[in-house]
Amino acid sequence: MYNAFSDNNQIGVVSSFSELINLHFQGDMNAICWHRNSLGDFKEIVEKIELKENITEISIADLLALQLSEKGCQARERILEDIQLLADFGASPSLNLLKSYERDDELDFISTDVYSFHVDRSPIGTDTFLCTYYGAASDILSNDQVEQKILIPEIRDKLKELHDGPEAEFESFLEEYYFDLHYQPKPDAKPVNLGVGHLWRLAVDHPAQQVLPCVHRAPVENNELRLLLIC
Results as ranks from 00 to 15, higher is better:
residue 1 M to Y: 09
residue 1 M to Q: 05
residue 2 Y to V: 11
residue 3 N to T: 12
residue 4 A to Q: 14
residue 8 N to V: 06
residue 12 G to R: 04
residue 12 G to W: 01
residue 14 V to T: 15
residue 14 V to L: 15
residue 15 S to V: 13
residue 17 F to L: 11
residue 17 F to P: 15
residue 19 E to W: 01
residue 22 N to K: 10
residue 23 L to E: 12
residue 23 L to Y: 15
residue 27 G to F: 06
residue 32 I to H: 07
residue 33 C to P: 00
residue 39 L to H: 15
residue 41 D to N: 14
residue 45 I to G: 05
residue 46 V to Q: 07
residue 50 E to P: 11
residue 51 L to R: 12
residue 53 E to S: 11
residue 53 E to W: 12
residue 54 N to W: 13
residue 54 N to K: 14
residue 55 I to Q: 07
residue 57 E to P: 11
residue 59 S to F: 05
residue 60 I to V: 14
residue 60 I to A: 14
residue 62 D to F: 13
residue 62 D to K: 09
residue 63 L to V: 07
residue 66 L to M: 11
residue 67 Q to K: 15
residue 68 L to W: 05
residue 69 S to E: 07
residue 71 K to Q: 15
residue 72 G to I: 01
residue 76 R to C: 09
residue 77 E to Q: 15
residue 83 I to F: 15
residue 83 I to L: 14
residue 85 L to C: 09
residue 86 L to H: 05
residue 90 G to S: 07
residue 92 S to Q: 12
residue 93 P to L: 02
residue 94 S to G: 09
residue 95 L to A: 13
residue 96 N to W: 07
residue 96 N to G: 06
residue 96 N to Q: 14
residue 97 L to D: 03
residue 99 K to Q: 08
residue 99 K to W: 02
residue 101 Y to N: 09
residue 104 D to V: 00
residue 106 E to G: 02
residue 108 D to Q: 08
residue 109 F to T: 02
residue 111 S to M: 00
residue 111 S to R: 04
residue 113 D to P: 04
residue 115 Y to E: 02
residue 115 Y to K: 04
residue 117 F to P: 01
residue 121 R to Q: 04
residue 121 R to L: 04
residue 129 F to E: 03
residue 129 F to D: 07
residue 136 A to L: 08
residue 136 A to F: 10
residue 141 L to V: 06
residue 143 N to M: 11
residue 145 Q to F: 08
residue 146 V to A: 06
residue 147 E to Q: 15
residue 148 Q to A: 11
residue 151 L to G: 04
residue 154 E to Y: 12
residue 154 E to K: 12
residue 161 E to C: 15
residue 161 E to W: 08
residue 162 L to S: 09
residue 164 D to V: 08
residue 165 G to Q: 05
residue 166 P to I: 02
residue 172 S to Y: 06
residue 172 S to T: 09
residue 175 E to S: 12
residue 181 L to W: 07
residue 190 K to Q: 11
residue 190 K to N: 06
residue 191 P to L: 03
residue 193 N to E: 12
residue 195 G to S: 03
residue 206 H to T: 01
residue 207 P to F: 03
residue 209 Q to K: 02
residue 214 C to N: 01
residue 218 A to S: 15
residue 220 V to M: 14
residue 221 E to L: 02
residue 228 L to K: 02
residue 228 L to T: 03
